[in-house]
């Protein structure tokens, strides 16, 4: 009889994948500035955790871990509902999803952190074909000499 857990994808394999998913979500949460993306990254972290739970449930041979993933789903749903509601409210006041616009809770007397570097023209603008304006052609400089 083959021992299931002795086969290569053991508990640790799953744990490592869960950890990497979690860490990637964290990196995204820290680096991205779109609030919706931040919450998607948070959901990614939750996915990593859920994978851990299931792996442990398999490892321990009971179903509590799987049950817990269901609660995780419930909590994630709640979180999404609340987060989206909040994002909507925030969007209505600033008309932007940029989280860096919200620095009101900084220490008194501290300057807000502003973006110094200018953005390059977006590739969309760059690459869109520029048609000549319909109508008469542009005024040409008059020729100075008629040879």
């Amino acid at each position: 009889m083959i021992q299931i857990m002795d086969l290569p994808p053991g508990l640790t394999h799953y744990l490592v994948v869960g950890a990497l998913l979690f860490v990637l979500g964290l990196v995204g949460f820290l680096a991205r500035r779109n609030m919706i993306l931040m919450f998607l990254n948070a959901e990614l972290m939750i996915q990593g955790v859920a994978l851990n739970f299931v792996a442990f449930a398999r490892h321990r041979g009971n179903l509590e871990g799987q049950g817990f993933v269901l609660f995780l789903l419930a909590v994630a749903a709640c979180e999404a509902a609340i987060a989206l509601a909040l994002i909507l409210v925030l969007y209505r006041t600033q008309h932007s999803l940029d989280v860096s616009l919200w620095q009101n809770l900084r220490e008194e007397g501290l300057e807000p952190i502003l973006d110094e570097e200018p953005l390059p023209l977006s590739p969309l603008e760059e690459k869109s074909p520029s048609l000549t304006v319909a109508g008469p052609g542009p005024a040409q400089p008059e020729e100075t000499s008629h040879v």
Partner: peptide, 16 residues
């Protein structure tokens, strides 16, 4: 615009 910028990518990657 916000999607074209990252908040401290180096620090975030180091932390990760």
């Amino acid at each position: 615009d916000a999607d074209n910028r990252s908040r401290e990518p180096g620090l975030a990657c180091f932390t990760g």
